[in-house]
């Protein structure tokens, strides 16, 4: 992943092993991480690797 983007996502508490929720895909991806909603454009969202837990 682009290190700059990685750093920014990091600031939201988004790091390996964290549980996130996907809320929306269009017009932007929106995820919830802790109690924060973060909008991500597709190219960034596609770099976030997840395993579905629910």
């Amino acid at each position: 992943m682009n290190p700059e983007v990685e750093l920014r996502l990091f600031g939201f508490g988004l790091f390996p092993g964290i549980e996130i929720e996907l809320l929306q895909r269009f017009p932007s991806y929106i995820i919830r991480c802790e109690r924060t909603e973060v909008a991500l454009e597709t190219s960034v969202a596609s770099q976030v690797r997840v395993t579905v837990v629910r």
């Binding site: 973060v38 909008a39 454009e41």
Partner: peptide
């Protein structure tokens, strides 16, 4: 341009 990442 930078990537769109924005907190709501």
């Amino acid at each position: 341009r930078s990537d769109f990442v924005l907190e709501l």
